[in-house]
């Protein structure tokens, strides 16, 4: 469909993508922010997964997992609205900060890139933590102790033992999170500002607002190519086997 024009086969729809800066700028921005969000999620998820699997005892482990899961029993829309209630100008957080005298007057915290990224990190965190926990559980404590015994410092243990060992979990978590973020629509739409345009919104606009299904299909296809490409590069860079990662 993306190759269809008014007179049969055409590359017009792809040409429009290249010639209109707003399209490819959004495209690059979406890709870049998705990678950024994935990285942030990973950096937060690693210590959390380690804490849950290796530090706390079994009973607390179960409780923490439930705590992680509970927010995901509600829909994404409700979670985002929850954040909006907390962050908006007349919201809970502003109320407290003004009350404590830290702010003179309420500040609008919604509708900017930072809030949007935070929202995306929050909504996709679970999908990173769960696969990493799966791998980390099979990591034998004695490997960490052995590294420690052989003279490794904490950073070296993370770099040489824990992260390489967890790599299949990290990669499958990263792929899931990256796809989710790249394809998310609600969070950027509701929490992002007027400049935080997401590529999915472009597709939505083309199809729903302009009724240009062909252009929308072309954008959708481009998004698919982009996500496949980035995942392929990431797998190559980390020398992971795709079959092992999706297991």
């Amino acid at each position: 469909m993306s190759f269809q024009g008014r007179s049969g086969f055409t590359l017009e729809n792809y040409g429009a993508f290249l010639t209109e800066p707003i399209y490819w700028l959004t495209f690059v921005r979406t890709a870049w922010y998705s990678i950024l969000v994935t990285c942030i999620v990973l950096i937060i998820a690693l210590p959390i997964a380690f804490f849950i699997t290796k530090v706390v005892n079994l009973r607390i482990q179960g409780a923490l997992l439930v705590l992680l899961l509970v927010p995901f029993w509600t829909s994404e829309l409700i979670r985002v609205y929850g954040w909006m209630i907390l962050l908006r100008e007349s919201g809970v957080l502003n109320h407290f900060l003004v009350g404590l005298g830290l702010f003179k007057q309420p500040k609008e915290m919604l509708y900017n890139d930072i809030t949007m990224i935070m929202g995306l990190v929050y909504t996709s965190m679970l999908f990173m933590i769960i696969p990493i926990i799966g791998v980390m559980e099979s990591l034998d404590d004695s490997l960490i102790e052995a590294a420690y015994d052989l003279g490794a410092k904490k950073i070296a243990i993370w770099r040489e033992i824990i992260i390489p060992y967890s790599m299949p979990g990290i990669m499958s978590g990263s792929i899931i999170v990256f796809m989710l973020v790249l394809g998310s629509y609600l969070t950027p739409k509701l929490m992002g500002g007027k400049y935080s345009l997401w590529f999915t919104e472009q597709i939505y606009n083309q199809i729903i607002i302009y009724f240009n299904w062909n252009q929308g299909a072309a954008f959708g296809f481009l998004l698919l190519v982009l996500s496949s490409l980035i995942i392929w590069v990431a797998l190559k860079l980390t020398k992971q086997d795709f079959r092992k990662v999706i297991k």
């Binding site: 034998d140 004695s142 490997l143 102790e145 052995a146 590294a147 420690y148 015994d149 052989l150 003279g151 490794a152 410092k153 040489e160 033992i161 390489p164 060992y165 790599m167």
Partner: peptide, 29 residues
């Protein structure tokens, strides 16, 4: 700390690093 003591421990299950080859295991310390 264990990483600063002049003793080394061979674990019951050996605790070799499965993601490294023999050379890297031996060179680790």
């Amino acid at each position: 700390e264990p990483n600063k003591r002049p003793v080394n421990l061979i674990f019951q299950n050996l605790a070799l690093f499965p993601m490294m080859n023999v050379y890297d295991n031996v060179a680790f310390g």
